[in-house]
């Protein structure tokens, strides 16, 4: 890979300052960034490590909201997000044990890989993405694959998840990468049900609003049996056609609802 300057600040302010340099990039767990850099597809002049900032790591729960620090590794969420079991379970299915010890929630959400798991949880939970500058609602944050509302040099410092009455994540793995070929996160709140889908769409994570309406009226797998998922915008690749992914969206949604019972 190309060489770069490595810095490891101990506060968010220092990190934000370090990121003002041209071609500086934040480094969180590096589980996606480093393989990309090995292929020389990414050439930062400077990497600003976020893993030395104590404020960015940790899980806490209060007032029905689960807060996760931006640089919290997946393994920590899996172990400590007991107040939001579906989120903990999702974190425990990302990658593998070694990846979960390094990869972070902030890194995943900032990258917004169309097959990543976390975006579905954030979107289905109506989470708030907290940055060094502002708070962004999940509905405004995800803007298509690998695209988010983050500005240059903006750092995710935390994510606030309203804890639902019931929730479940169904991940169907792509056989090679073990990313989500399609993943569906269903979350039931007092004011309605939210369904977010990852891995399936050319536009990245999305909400399946028809299912949300049907499930808000009747939270049972049967409620969606009459729905069809349009395959027009679905990803078609070596691992599955658009029609196959559309099928998975429906099947996995049904299973997620069943698992909530």
């Amino acid at each position: 890979m190309y060489n770069f300057e490595f810095v490891k600040p101990s506060s968010v302010d220092e990190a934000v300052a370090a990121l003002r340099d041209e071609d500086a990039q934040p480094l969180s767990g590096g589980q996606t960034l480093i393989p990309t850099m090995k292929q020389r597809l990414n050439q930062p002049s400077k990497l600003v490590s976020l893993t030395g900032i104590a404020d960015l790591v940790g899980v806490s729960s209060s007032g029905g909201v689960l807060s996760v620090g931006g640089a919290t590794p997946h393994a920590t969420v899996a172990a400590e997000a007991g107040d939001y079991p579906a989120l903990a379970a999702l974190a425990g299915q990302i990658g593998d044990p070694a990846v979960r010890n390094r990869g972070t929630i902030g890194g995943s959400l900032a990258n917004n890989d169309p097959a990543a798991c976390y975006p579905s949880a954030a979107l289905a939970s109506g989470a708030t993405i907290v940055t060094n500058a502002r708070e962004i609602a999940a509905d405004d944050y995800f803007q298509g694959m690998f695209t988010t509302a983050l500005d240059e040099g903006e750092i995710i410092t935390g994510v606030k998840f309203p804890i639902p009455q019931a929730a479940n994540y169904q991940k169907f793995e792509q056989p090679a990468s073990r990313f989500a070929l399609t993943g569906v996160f269903v979350a039931k709140y007092a004011d309605g049900v939210r369904v977010a889908v990852t891995g399936a769409s050319n536009d990245g994570v999305f909400r399946w609003t028809e299912a949300e309406e049907a499930l808000s009226a009747n939270f049972s797998p049967n409620a969606i049996s009459g729905l069809t998922v349009a395959s027009d915008d679905m990803i078609s690749d070596l691992h599955g056609s658009a029609a196959y992914r559309a099928n998975l969206v429906k099947v996995l949604t049904g299973r997620a609802v069943a698992a909530c019972a």
Binding site: P175, A176, S177, R178, L238, H239
Partner: peptide, 24 residues
């Protein structure tokens, strides 16, 4: 699982473990 696939232009579609499914 395993499938070494080319597209019609001769590009290797399964060029890493991200797309070539090794048994785990």
């Amino acid at each position: 699982l395993e499938n070494c696939a080319y597209d019609e232009d001769g590009q290797l579609l399964s060029a890493s473990y991200m797309d070539y499914a090794m048994p785990r």
